[in-house]
């Protein structure tokens, strides 16, 4: 039985330059923190989980699916939250943007509307349903992005520095949803040691190599020690 997240001898090259080297890793924890310096390969790792990056060598399995070979399947099972709140909104209004996540499911208009309303209420966005999405605050936009991801009921949510553009109170709200409220498996790329500490396991990359994994507090402590 393979793990929910399974990497075996995976390398990634961009135009001949190796940015991730010979990664072998199995993860079944609910909340997985990914830490490491800038340019260490965290985003490359995260983006492989939903097929945005294709490995040059090696084998990847995510929830039983090969992301590179089964793009349709993987996008049903894996939701992705990016850092930039502005660049995730596709449709003009809040409700339309969430509804966009349900297209192609063969749902009736009423069914879509019901689900969208329920989801928006859950994220405290109900009163903004018909507002132009671009008029939301950064924090609300990020909640909208998360709402649009979760309404598809993925098995895994990947979040690449989802709080990077947010102030402290909005970061807390996003973190609460990701870490405490949603039941899905989570891969959280973050620079915030407090968020990483709330995960069940942390993995650390440096210069394209997996250098540490284990209890988040210990992994963070070793990381911070080295940075002094």
């Amino acid at each position: 039985m393979t793990s929910e997240i399974h990497f075996e001898n995976v390398s990634v090259e961009f135009s001949g330059r190796e940015v991730l080297r010979d990664l072998s890793l199995d993860l079944d924890e609910r909340r997985i923190a990914v830490i490491g310096s800038n340019g260490s390969g965290k985003s490359t790792f995260a983006r492989m989980l939903n097929g945005l990056v294709t490995p040059t060598r090696g084998e990847v399995r995510v929830h039983g699916v090969d992301p590179a070979r089964q793009p349709k399947e993987i996008r049903r099972r894996v939701g992705f939250v990016f850092s930039n709140p502005d660049a995730q909104i596709i449709m003009p209004t809040v409700a339309e943007d969430v509804a966009f996540s349900l297209r192609g499911r063969g749902l009736t208009r009423t069914e879509v509307q019901e689900r969208v309303t329920a989801a928006l209420d859950r994220f405290g966005l109900g009163e903004h349903a018909d507002a132009p999405a671009q008029t939301l605050s950064g924090g609300q936009k990020q909640l909208l992005a998360l709402c649009a991801v979760l309404i598809r009921e993925p098995g895994l949510v990947v979040a690449d520095e989802p709080t990077a553009y947010l102030d402290a109170s909005n970061s807390r709200r996003i973190a609460r949803f990701l870490l405490d409220e949603m039941p899905q498996q989570l891969v959280l790329v973050t620079h915030d040691p407090r968020l990483a500490a709330r995960c069940d396991i942390a993995v650390r990359f440096e210069a394209g190599i997996l250098v540490d994994r284990g209890d988040p507090a210990a992994v963070i402590a070793r990381y911070e020690e080295e940075q002094l």
Partner: peptide
């Protein structure tokens, strides 16, 4: 840069 990011978001949300 924005259109690059948006293209990623589109892909991630199942548009190909």
């Amino acid at each position: 840069k924005h259109s690059d990011d948006l293209a990623d978001a589109l892909t991630a949300r199942g548009v190909d």
